[in-house]
């Protein structure tokens, strides 16, 4: 260390601990990127749909032969809304070092996530929508819904990793940062599904 450099530090007061919540901040940036990714997808979808309806008044944007039922997406929306509550239950229980409630809430939240993956698979079988170059809607609907499916999987994997770290620790609240970060990504995932639900399925 050079003398002037060392002298510089003599002018100042004692150090304090650096900022924490590193995982939450990092996840926040990742979530912002995810939001912009879906913003790009939905922007293209709405733009193309508006152009199609303007050029083909009276025609359906959804190609003939395809069925977009509202039942499965609505059930998924409610499932995910419930998972928001259980996810916050996980964070609350972790904060209080309540290992039993943390485990119960984690299992319920994960079950909701797996249920959404299952329902999406069911919806794909039900839709009868094919990517064959005949429709602009098909590649866009599959891109958006499959991207969300991938996001659910990533959020579940993140939750799983944080659950292992938290439950394996003698003091679960030490890992509150990680669990809160997983919850942040989960909430963003749920918010995005609600936008997709309204944009793709309710308004078709």
């Amino acid at each position: 260390m050079s003398e002037p450099a060392a002298a510089a530090t003599e002018l100042v007061a004692p150090a304090v601990a650096p900022r924490r919540r590193t995982l939450q901040v990092g996840t926040g940036f990742a979530a912002a990127a995810v939001l912009m990714y879906f913003g790009g997808l939905l922007g293209v979808y709405f733009s193309e749909r508006a152009d199609f309806l303007r050029a083909n008044p009276g025609q359906s944007w959804i190609p003939a032969g395809a069925r977009i039922e509202l039942t499965a997406p609505t059930v998924m929306a409610w499932t995910l809304l419930l998972s928001v509550v259980t996810m916050q239950w996980v964070v609350h229980a972790t904060k209080r070092d309540d290992r039993r409630h943390t485990l119960i809430a984690l299992v319920v939240t994960a079950m909701f996530g797996v249920a959404v993956i299952n329902q999406t698979a069911f919806q794909y079988r039900q839709m009868g929508l094919t990517i064959d170059g005949g429709s602009l809607a098909a590649p866009l609907i599959y891109t958006i819904s499959a991207s969300h499916l991938a996001l659910v999987t990533v959020a579940l994997a993140y939750l799983f990793v944080m659950a292992i770290r938290t439950l394996a620790s003698p003091v679960p609240s030490v890992h509150l940062d990680g669990m809160s970060a997983a919850a942040l990504l989960w909430h963003v995932m749920v918010f995005l599904y609600l936008v997709i639900w309204v944009g793709l399925f309710v308004t078709k």
Binding site: G40, G43, G133
Partner: peptide, 17 residues
């Protein structure tokens, strides 16, 4: 971070199509 994810969205749409 806010603009390049949109580029990724463009690429994924192209790939799926």
């Amino acid at each position: 971070l806010l603009s390049l994810p949109v580029l990724v969205a463009n690429l994924v749409i192209m790939w799926v199509d």
